[in-house]
Simulated scan of single mutants.
Amino acid sequence: MVRLRLDLGYDGTDFSGWAKQPDLRTVQGEIEGALRRILRLDAAPDLTVAGRTDAGVHARGQVAHVDIDPATLVALDGNRPPEEPALDERLVRLLRRLAGVMPTDVRVHRVTVAPEGFDARFSALSRRYAYRISDAPGGGDPLRRNEVVWHARPLSLEALNAAAVHLLGEHDFAAFCKKREGATTIRELQRLDWVRDEAGVLVATVVADAFCHSMVRALVGSLLAVGEGRQPVEWPGQVLARAARDSGVHVAPARGLCLEEVRYPEPAELARRAAMTRRVRTL
Protein backbone atom coordinates (compact mmCIF):
# COMPACT_ATOMS: atom_id res chain seq x y z
CA MET A 1 0.00 0.00 0.00
CA VAL A 2 1.08 3.58 -0.61
CA ARG A 3 -0.05 6.38 1.71
CA LEU A 4 -1.15 9.52 -0.09
CA ARG A 5 -1.39 12.96 1.51
CA LEU A 6 -4.26 15.13 0.30
CA ASP A 7 -4.21 18.90 0.86
CA LEU A 8 -7.71 20.28 0.41
CA GLY A 9 -10.22 23.02 1.07
CA TYR A 10 -13.99 23.37 1.11
CA ASP A 11 -16.91 25.72 1.65
CA GLY A 12 -18.76 24.03 4.51
CA THR A 13 -22.08 25.80 3.91
CA ASP A 14 -23.89 22.89 2.28
CA PHE A 15 -22.09 20.05 4.08
CA SER A 16 -23.17 18.23 7.24
CA GLY A 17 -19.59 18.43 8.47
CA TRP A 18 -16.52 16.40 7.53
CA ALA A 19 -17.38 12.91 8.80
CA LYS A 20 -19.45 10.66 6.55
CA GLN A 21 -22.99 9.96 7.75
CA PRO A 22 -25.79 7.91 6.19
CA ASP A 23 -28.06 9.93 3.90
CA LEU A 24 -26.19 13.21 4.58
CA ARG A 25 -23.83 15.15 2.34
CA THR A 26 -20.38 15.33 3.92
CA VAL A 27 -16.90 16.31 2.76
CA GLN A 28 -15.46 12.88 3.55
CA GLY A 29 -18.30 11.21 1.67
CA GLU A 30 -17.75 13.35 -1.44
CA ILE A 31 -13.99 12.73 -1.63
CA GLU A 32 -14.16 9.02 -0.82
CA GLY A 33 -16.91 8.57 -3.41
CA ALA A 34 -14.85 10.37 -6.03
CA LEU A 35 -11.80 8.20 -5.30
CA ARG A 36 -13.86 5.05 -5.56
CA ARG A 37 -15.25 6.13 -8.91
CA ILE A 38 -11.96 7.29 -10.42
CA LEU A 39 -9.93 4.28 -9.24
CA ARG A 40 -12.75 1.81 -9.98
CA LEU A 41 -12.70 0.36 -6.47
CA ASP A 42 -15.27 -2.07 -5.07
CA ALA A 43 -15.54 0.00 -1.88
CA ALA A 44 -14.65 3.56 -1.01
CA PRO A 45 -11.24 3.97 0.68
CA ASP A 46 -11.12 5.37 4.21
CA LEU A 47 -9.78 8.90 4.63
CA THR A 48 -8.08 10.00 7.86
CA VAL A 49 -8.31 13.74 8.43
CA ALA A 50 -6.26 16.20 10.49
CA GLY A 51 -9.31 17.79 12.07
CA ARG A 52 -12.99 16.89 11.76
CA THR A 53 -15.01 20.03 11.13
CA ASP A 54 -18.65 20.52 12.10
CA ALA A 55 -21.55 21.30 9.78
CA GLY A 56 -21.10 24.73 8.21
CA VAL A 57 -17.40 25.09 9.11
CA HIS A 58 -15.01 25.82 6.23
CA ALA A 59 -11.43 24.75 5.53
CA ARG A 60 -8.67 26.33 3.49
CA GLY A 61 -5.78 24.16 4.70
CA GLN A 62 -7.25 20.79 5.62
CA VAL A 63 -5.06 17.67 5.35
CA ALA A 64 -6.06 14.02 4.99
CA HIS A 65 -4.37 10.75 4.14
CA VAL A 66 -5.55 7.60 2.38
CA ASP A 67 -3.87 4.22 1.86
CA ILE A 68 -4.11 2.98 -1.73
CA ASP A 69 -2.93 -0.19 -3.47
CA PRO A 70 -0.53 1.17 -6.13
CA ALA A 71 -2.01 -1.30 -8.62
CA THR A 72 -5.31 0.58 -8.53
CA LEU A 73 -3.61 3.67 -9.94
CA VAL A 74 -3.35 1.86 -13.27
CA ALA A 75 -6.97 2.88 -13.79
CA LEU A 76 -5.65 6.39 -14.35
CA ASP A 77 -3.66 5.39 -17.43
CA GLY A 78 -6.64 4.95 -19.74
CA ASN A 79 -5.60 4.14 -23.33
CA ARG A 80 -2.12 5.58 -23.04
CA PRO A 81 0.95 3.67 -24.31
CA PRO A 82 1.90 0.57 -22.31
CA GLU A 83 5.13 1.99 -20.83
CA GLU A 84 4.90 2.41 -17.06
CA PRO A 85 4.35 6.10 -16.12
CA ALA A 86 6.02 7.51 -13.05
CA LEU A 87 3.99 7.59 -9.82
CA ASP A 88 4.14 11.40 -9.76
CA GLU A 89 2.58 11.51 -13.22
CA ARG A 90 -0.26 9.29 -12.08
CA LEU A 91 -0.87 11.50 -9.05
CA VAL A 92 -1.19 14.55 -11.31
CA ARG A 93 -3.77 12.64 -13.34
CA LEU A 94 -5.58 11.72 -10.11
CA LEU A 95 -5.67 15.38 -9.08
CA ARG A 96 -7.15 16.44 -12.42
CA ARG A 97 -9.74 13.65 -12.33
CA LEU A 98 -10.79 14.67 -8.82
CA ALA A 99 -11.29 18.24 -10.00
CA GLY A 100 -13.40 16.95 -12.86
CA VAL A 101 -15.82 14.81 -10.85
CA MET A 102 -16.17 16.62 -7.51
CA PRO A 103 -18.53 19.55 -6.85
CA THR A 104 -17.02 23.03 -6.83
CA ASP A 105 -17.45 23.57 -3.07
CA VAL A 106 -14.69 21.04 -2.29
CA ARG A 107 -11.27 20.88 -3.90
CA VAL A 108 -8.17 18.74 -3.45
CA HIS A 109 -5.26 21.10 -4.20
CA ARG A 110 -2.41 18.60 -3.99
CA VAL A 111 -1.80 14.83 -3.84
CA THR A 112 1.64 13.57 -2.78
CA VAL A 113 3.19 10.38 -1.44
CA ALA A 114 3.33 10.81 2.34
CA PRO A 115 6.68 10.39 4.11
CA GLU A 116 7.16 7.26 6.22
CA GLY A 117 5.42 7.61 9.58
CA PHE A 118 3.00 10.30 8.40
CA ASP A 119 -0.47 10.32 9.94
CA ALA A 120 -2.68 13.27 9.00
CA ARG A 121 -4.29 13.32 12.44
CA PHE A 122 -1.74 12.13 14.94
CA SER A 123 1.44 13.57 13.36
CA ALA A 124 0.13 17.15 13.42
CA LEU A 125 1.93 19.68 15.62
CA SER A 126 -0.86 22.24 15.55
CA ARG A 127 -4.03 23.42 13.83
CA ARG A 128 -4.69 27.07 13.03
CA TYR A 129 -8.24 28.36 12.72
CA ALA A 130 -9.60 31.80 11.89
CA TYR A 131 -12.95 33.15 13.03
CA ARG A 132 -14.36 36.14 11.15
CA ILE A 133 -17.04 38.46 12.47
CA SER A 134 -18.37 41.88 11.45
CA ASP A 135 -19.88 44.44 13.81
CA ALA A 136 -20.60 46.99 11.06
CA PRO A 137 -23.78 48.94 11.98
CA GLY A 138 -25.37 48.23 8.61
CA GLY A 139 -24.54 44.52 8.57
CA GLY A 140 -21.85 42.46 6.91
CA ASP A 141 -20.82 42.24 3.28
CA PRO A 142 -23.52 40.14 1.55
CA LEU A 143 -20.87 38.60 -0.73
CA ARG A 144 -19.10 37.20 2.35
CA ARG A 145 -22.20 36.12 4.25
CA ASN A 146 -21.16 32.45 4.26
CA GLU A 147 -17.79 33.13 5.94
CA VAL A 148 -18.31 36.27 8.06
CA VAL A 149 -20.82 36.38 10.90
CA TRP A 150 -22.58 39.67 11.63
CA HIS A 151 -22.74 40.74 15.28
CA ALA A 152 -25.47 43.25 16.06
CA ARG A 153 -23.56 45.05 18.84
CA PRO A 154 -20.24 46.93 18.56
CA LEU A 155 -17.20 44.98 19.76
CA SER A 156 -14.06 46.29 21.46
CA LEU A 157 -10.86 44.91 19.92
CA GLU A 158 -8.93 45.82 23.07
CA ALA A 159 -11.35 43.96 25.35
CA LEU A 160 -11.32 40.87 23.11
CA ASN A 161 -7.54 40.64 23.25
CA ALA A 162 -7.36 41.39 26.97
CA ALA A 163 -9.77 38.54 27.72
CA ALA A 164 -8.05 36.11 25.34
CA VAL A 165 -4.80 36.25 27.32
CA HIS A 166 -6.49 34.41 30.22
CA LEU A 167 -7.16 31.36 28.05
CA LEU A 168 -3.64 30.66 26.74
CA GLY A 169 -1.61 27.65 27.83
CA GLU A 170 -2.29 23.99 28.62
CA HIS A 171 -5.55 23.53 30.50
CA ASP A 172 -8.56 21.32 30.83
CA PHE A 173 -10.94 23.01 28.38
CA ALA A 174 -13.99 21.04 29.55
CA ALA A 175 -15.87 24.35 29.96
CA PHE A 176 -15.56 24.95 26.21
CA CYS A 177 -15.92 21.41 24.81
CA LYS A 178 -18.67 18.90 24.23
CA LYS A 179 -17.35 15.89 26.13
CA ARG A 180 -16.99 12.55 24.38
CA GLU A 181 -16.75 9.20 26.14
CA GLY A 182 -13.14 8.24 26.75
CA ALA A 183 -11.73 11.47 25.25
CA THR A 184 -9.65 14.00 27.14
CA THR A 185 -10.43 17.73 27.09
CA ILE A 186 -6.86 18.77 27.96
CA ARG A 187 -5.39 20.93 25.21
CA GLU A 188 -2.59 23.46 24.77
CA LEU A 189 -3.91 26.75 23.41
CA GLN A 190 -0.85 28.31 21.81
CA ARG A 191 -2.32 31.46 20.29
CA LEU A 192 -5.57 33.42 20.51
CA ASP A 193 -5.66 37.02 19.36
CA TRP A 194 -7.81 39.41 17.32
CA VAL A 195 -7.18 42.00 14.61
CA ARG A 196 -9.36 44.11 12.33
CA ASP A 197 -8.62 43.57 8.65
CA GLU A 198 -8.69 46.25 5.96
CA ALA A 199 -12.47 45.79 5.60
CA GLY A 200 -13.07 46.27 9.32
CA VAL A 201 -13.82 42.58 9.88
CA LEU A 202 -12.65 41.20 13.22
CA VAL A 203 -10.48 38.11 12.70
CA ALA A 204 -9.53 35.80 15.55
CA THR A 205 -6.49 33.55 15.03
CA VAL A 206 -6.69 30.42 17.18
CA VAL A 207 -3.83 27.89 17.33
CA ALA A 208 -3.63 24.75 19.47
CA ASP A 209 -1.97 21.36 19.34
CA ALA A 210 -5.49 19.95 18.93
CA PHE A 211 -9.08 20.99 19.55
CA CYS A 212 -12.02 19.17 21.10
CA HIS A 213 -15.57 19.32 19.78
CA SER A 214 -16.97 22.90 19.51
CA MET A 215 -13.95 24.33 21.39
CA VAL A 216 -13.04 27.19 19.04
CA ARG A 217 -16.62 28.40 18.64
CA ALA A 218 -17.21 28.25 22.41
CA LEU A 219 -14.01 30.20 23.09
CA VAL A 220 -15.09 32.84 20.57
CA GLY A 221 -18.56 32.97 22.11
CA SER A 222 -17.13 33.66 25.56
CA LEU A 223 -14.92 36.44 24.22
CA LEU A 224 -17.79 38.12 22.37
CA ALA A 225 -19.58 38.55 25.72
CA VAL A 226 -16.53 40.52 26.88
CA GLY A 227 -16.12 42.41 23.61
CA GLU A 228 -19.62 43.83 23.79
CA GLY A 229 -19.28 44.72 27.49
CA ARG A 230 -21.60 42.14 29.09
CA GLN A 231 -18.78 40.43 31.01
CA PRO A 232 -15.44 41.59 32.49
CA VAL A 233 -12.17 40.63 30.83
CA GLU A 234 -11.46 38.07 33.58
CA TRP A 235 -14.67 36.12 32.97
CA PRO A 236 -13.53 33.65 30.24
CA GLY A 237 -10.54 32.69 32.41
CA GLN A 238 -12.86 32.13 35.38
CA VAL A 239 -15.09 29.89 33.28
CA LEU A 240 -12.02 27.94 32.16
CA ALA A 241 -10.89 27.41 35.75
CA ARG A 242 -14.27 25.93 36.74
CA ALA A 243 -13.88 23.24 34.01
CA ALA A 244 -17.66 22.96 33.61
CA ARG A 245 -20.01 24.23 30.92
CA ASP A 246 -21.40 27.69 31.70
CA SER A 247 -24.82 28.75 30.45
CA GLY A 248 -23.39 32.21 29.77
CA VAL A 249 -21.10 30.83 27.05
CA HIS A 250 -22.90 30.82 23.71
CA VAL A 251 -21.27 28.82 20.91
CA ALA A 252 -20.56 31.14 17.97
CA PRO A 253 -22.14 30.27 14.58
CA ALA A 254 -20.30 27.71 12.46
CA ARG A 255 -20.05 29.73 9.26
CA GLY A 256 -17.52 32.19 10.70
CA LEU A 257 -14.96 29.44 11.34
CA CYS A 258 -12.30 28.24 8.89
CA LEU A 259 -9.44 25.75 9.31
CA GLU A 260 -6.53 27.65 7.79
CA GLU A 261 -3.46 25.47 8.35
CA VAL A 262 -2.19 22.20 9.81
CA ARG A 263 1.49 22.08 10.75
CA TYR A 264 3.66 18.94 10.81
CA PRO A 265 7.22 18.23 12.00
CA GLU A 266 10.10 17.29 9.76
CA PRO A 267 9.76 13.80 8.20
CA ALA A 268 12.19 12.20 10.65
CA GLU A 269 9.96 13.27 13.56
CA LEU A 270 6.57 12.21 12.15
CA ALA A 271 6.31 8.78 13.77
CA ARG A 272 7.55 10.03 17.16
CA ARG A 273 5.03 12.88 17.08
CA ALA A 274 2.21 10.44 16.28
CA ALA A 275 3.18 8.24 19.24
CA MET A 276 3.24 11.26 21.58
CA THR A 277 -0.17 12.47 20.40
CA ARG A 278 -1.78 9.09 21.04
CA ARG A 279 -0.92 9.18 24.74
CA VAL A 280 -3.67 10.01 27.25
CA ARG A 281 -2.91 13.47 28.55
CA THR A 282 -3.18 14.67 32.14
CA LEU A 283 -2.35 18.03 33.68
Results as ranks from 00 to 15, higher is better:
residue 171 H to G: 04
residue 25 R to K: 03
residue 272 R to E: 15
residue 154 P to G: 09
residue 154 P to Y: 10
residue 259 L to Y: 03
residue 54 D to S: 04
residue 40 R to L: 15
residue 73 L to C: 14
residue 204 A to G: 02
residue 197 D to K: 07
residue 5 R to H: 02
residue 176 F to C: 11
residue 25 R to M: 01
residue 238 Q to H: 08
residue 172 D to G: 06
residue 22 P to E: 07
residue 240 L to C: 07
residue 266 E to C: 02
residue 267 P to C: 07
residue 194 W to R: 10
residue 134 S to H: 10
residue 106 V to M: 07
residue 111 V to K: 03
residue 193 D to L: 02
residue 84 E to C: 00
residue 251 V to R: 09
residue 224 L to C: 13
residue 272 R to G: 08
residue 199 A to M: 03
residue 20 K to G: 02
residue 181 E to Q: 14
residue 108 V to P: 10
residue 188 E to P: 01
residue 262 V to L: 06
residue 38 I to N: 11
residue 182 G to S: 10
residue 161 N to D: 10
residue 187 R to S: 11
residue 244 A to F: 00
residue 157 L to N: 08
residue 113 V to T: 03
residue 1 M to T: 05
residue 48 T to Q: 15
residue 255 R to W: 04
residue 155 L to I: 14
residue 214 S to M: 08
residue 73 L to R: 12
residue 125 L to A: 11
residue 96 R to L: 14
residue 282 T to Y: 15
residue 75 A to C: 09
residue 25 R to T: 05
residue 58 H to M: 01
residue 280 V to R: 15
residue 109 H to Q: 03
residue 85 P to T: 06
residue 98 L to Q: 13
residue 274 A to P: 11
residue 138 G to Y: 11
residue 274 A to H: 11
residue 39 L to S: 13
residue 254 A to F: 02
residue 202 L to N: 04
residue 29 G to D: 02
residue 142 P to L: 13
residue 62 Q to E: 05
residue 119 D to A: 11
residue 203 V to P: 06
residue 151 H to R: 13
residue 138 G to R: 13
residue 33 G to H: 08
residue 38 I to T: 11
residue 140 G to H: 12
residue 14 D to Q: 09
residue 182 G to T: 07
residue 144 R to M: 14
residue 34 A to H: 13
residue 78 G to M: 02
residue 74 V to K: 07
residue 59 A to V: 03
residue 280 V to F: 13
residue 57 V to H: 05
residue 199 A to Q: 10
residue 15 F to S: 08
residue 261 E to R: 13
residue 179 K to L: 14
residue 170 E to T: 14
residue 224 L to T: 14
residue 123 S to E: 07
residue 117 G to D: 05
residue 39 L to E: 11
residue 141 D to Q: 10
residue 125 L to C: 12
residue 273 R to P: 01
residue 277 T to G: 10
residue 85 P to Y: 07
residue 175 A to C: 11
residue 252 A to G: 07
residue 191 R to P: 05
residue 251 V to Y: 01
residue 206 V to Y: 01
residue 200 G to T: 05
residue 157 L to A: 09
